[in-house]
Design a protein around this nucleic acid. Structure first.
Lengths: 335, 335
DNA sequence: TATGTATTTTTACGCGGGTAAAGTTTTTTG
DNA sequence: CAAAAAACTTTACCCGCGTAAAAATACATA
């Protein structure tokens, strides 16, 4: 920087000031620096910059499973917002593993980020590790809530998801039974089941929760295996299946197809299937999947906005914030 | 570190040596440091560490579109390898945009990474930007080859993909026509079309390439729209469709379903569909998709291994390396 | 033109650790 | 047990930049 300062005819501290905020130097000075910048392609050493800053311009983004297009989609929005706000986003995926999530939090702490957007693994998370992390780094949770951790949580209102699908399904046909994983990784799954039970009770209908076995993040395969077994046993209490999430539904639909069971709302159909999330592939299933959609954009943007506000507030909110967005029912062909 | 050194009773330079390579200090010394490490949770400042290193222990991973589960899957393998080799992987997605790819390369250069694994956008890439980058940072290309850039390219042998599917399809039924995007983003698509043409010629069969319009990375939707149009116009020259890639096939299958066209190899089926990639969702389509699978693991591991070798060689190979892995035919229900 | 304000320059120090050089201690080897 | 080798300690300087303080300029206003 010293050399570059000489070359541009400006003192080093002023050049430093320019790189921290080009608007903080006089118009004429800025031009001279920018001209020099074109002649020599100098750019400040990011490590030296961050060494003295008590807080960097980095933002950490952690998702539980990047191979899930749902998260990939959210990440895209978030990254864009961070960049246009002058931050450098760093993306991490826990790949469904607690050990990896912990490693990520550790290396993230070393990065001294201005803030972190964290979608935790959920049930599999190491609660203590997350708590420790959140108390050291300004963190906004999204997707999966963990009570009391982070300064805010932004997510979807699971009750709204289930109430809309159940209302629609009961209004247009047999009341649904509810398909879920027995040990869901994600806390939203539990909330959805509870919502289903409570809504069915309000409607004075018999709830039927079907819990299928399976571990990990291969939801489609779990849904498919579970579906095959259910269909073989002919064990379904109704002709309408509401899946906890789209990936499970994708697997279940594939099982239905394999068993030659026509799915849809037409008269010749034996079964209706609906679900929650509006997974990017939901419109390409056969038949296309009726589902309750996340407000992807609102969740992503609100999460980022909240983090920026948190950063501006010095990393702490007086009170933990919680914001849930309602679902939007997407009617397609499966129900 | 000075404080910690005092606390552990070891001199600072030795402690520094320990953190650079725990094996480089005497057994007894290591133990004393590690004991102190448990009492005080000190860890070196990554910015200070990297400031003086001419080369960091970071590895950049750039993919064109992280929302594509194909890349998400590869990334998972690569990240793991990097971590266990003591590197810190940083993941970036270009999200299909040239400007973003360029930004990523720029900020990557500032990170002074030991090496970079780059899957470029392909046709959309800014060739000059990539060339400049590769000449400054040890880079291994994967997935999409760009002639002459990077020190090595690791990918799949497109000819092997197409020859296996075409051979299978012609042996078991009508010869296939070939469905592709008119302006594919990815150079593999062109190689696949050329392979199709050449293989059909060898077999003395009439090739039929069907190019559909559509831009961007929403391949499924493009395949679906193109499929709907083709089916409506009844414009297919054969009952066998070979798609350039699985995502296109997923869209095409959804169009077939919508049009009530039975796909599969059974006697009651009107059409066969096959494809290439073995996308993570290919087994859940209806019917499940017959496809040529990448050797995901080999590609990922060979790419990482090549990069490590490149790093050890000081960032340059005498000659650009190129390694292609053959496909493995996966027979499912669609053809 | 004089005065006040906004910028810039000079000067100097610090961040946290890499690393080289010389001297000392410990361990290994013959 | 002596000599050689290996590991460690001391000392000192460096990396590239942020930043504070004081002095010098530049610009704006009356």
């Amino acid at each position: 920087m010293a050399d570059f300062a000489v070359a541009s005819g400006i003192s080093r501290p002023t050049v430093s000031k320019y790189f921290n905020d080009p608007g903080s130097v006089r118009e004429s000075t800025r031009k001279r620096i920018e001209e020099a910048l074109e002649r020599f392609d100098y750019r400040p050493n990011i490590y030296a910059i961050n060494q003295n800053r008590q807080m960097t311009k980095n933002i950490g983004i952690v998702v539980p499973y990047i191979a899930d297009p749902f998260f990939a989609e959210i990440v895209r929005v978030i990254e864009r917002r961070c960049i246009s706000a002058g931050f450098s986003p760093s993306l991490f995926s826990s790949h469904g593993e607690q050990a990896l999530e912990n490693d990520i939090l550790e290396s993230l702490r070393a990065m001294k980020p201005a803030g972190v957007l964290l979608a935790p693994l959920g049930r599999v998370s190491d609660k203590k590790a997350i708590e420790t992390f959140c108390s050291n780094v300004p963190t906004v949770l999204f997707d999966s809530n963990i009570e009391g951790m982070g300064e805010a949580f932004i997510g979807s209102d699971n009750y709204s998801f289930v109430s809309q699908t159940v209302e629609y399904l009961t209004r247009t046909g047999e009341p649904p039974c509810f398909l879920e994983m027995r040990h869901p990784a994600n806390p939203n799954a539990n909330k959805r089941r509870d919502a289903y039970l409570s809504i069915m009770q309000n409607l004075k209908l018999d709830p039927h929760v079907i819990s299928i076995d399976g571990e990990g993040w291969g939801f489609e395969e779990i849904g498919r295996q579970g579906g095959l077994q259910l269909l073989e046993e002919n064990a379904l209490p109704t002709n309408t299946m509401l899946c906890s999430n789209d990936r499970l539904a994708i697997g279940f639909l594939s099982a239905c197809y394999e068993k030659g069971i026509r799915v849809g709302r037409g008269g010749d159909c034996e079964m209706r299937v609906a679900s929650h999330d509006d997974h990017p592939f939901a419109r390409f299933t056969c038949p296309s999947l009726t589902t309750a959609a996340h407000d992807y954009t609102s969740v992503s943007e609100h999460a980022v906005a909240t983090l920026f506000r948190l950063i501006d507030s010095g990393g702490r909110f007086e009170q933990r914030e919680e914001k849930l967005f309602p679902a939007k029912l997407i009617l397609r062909e499966s129900a």
